[in-house]
Write a protein that binds this DNA or RNA. Sequence first.
DNA 1: ATGGTGGATTTTCCA
Length: 272
Amino acid sequence: MLIATWNVNSVRARLPRLLPWLETLRPDVVCLQELKCRDEDFPAGPLEELGYNILSYGQKTYNGVALLSLERAEDPIRGFPGDPDASQKRVITATFGDLRILNAYVVNGREVGCAAYQHKLDWLAKLREFVAAQLSEYPRLVLTGDFNITFDDRDVYDPEAWREKILCSTPERAALADLTGLGLTDLFRYFHDEGGHYSWFDFRTRGFQRKLGLRIDHFLASGPVLEASRDVRIDLVARDGEKPSDHAPVLLELLEQSEPSERGMTAETDTP
DNA sequence: ATGGTGGATTTTCCA
């Protein structure tokens, strides 16, 4: 089973890259961020032709998230339940088989100390509350998306230049650690200990050509999903070439789900 | 310190 996350930086502008990528990889679930379009403007037709079901939660110009899946999604939730401020469409959640997937586009925050930065920390606190509630209901859970936060200096091409800057500051990293503190594991780091692997490269500095980037797109998984995980990789080919997004897709490979009867048998027959 | 590029919508905002 293959699950992907990709900040596409406008789903309509990225369609010429997204469609052949879907045809080649055929991920079972794709978590998209930064749609930059309303749901009625989402290019559903060509994606449905490839066999994908679509759950989108978009708005004009900014933000927007979607879940594409080969199998139909169940129990979707758009945004945070009961959130009075639904002006920014940044999170969508659904169940696929026995897996609960939360797809988030975390607030960027612009600059440490500004109003947007405080909004980022406030939003992350709401995300944590939502994830905790979902975990109590769905133990097999994946939280993925564009977190706009590096875990540590291994995720940064020039740690000294980025010290306490946006995407790298101590309060942001503490908020990220608060999420993993719920019992979630950074799956990329679980499989790859070394630094130098990045998922975002700045257009402005021609970061991709210079291999200077940050790792800010993550898969955080609960224990049962960690046990079923095979590998996480960053698809740099999709970041290269004509009209790419500034983010590369990140891919999680899971062991195939066991049959319900098989699971039941294992649980009962494992005990001597 | 600034600007560089890219997308959507517009003469600027956000990343």
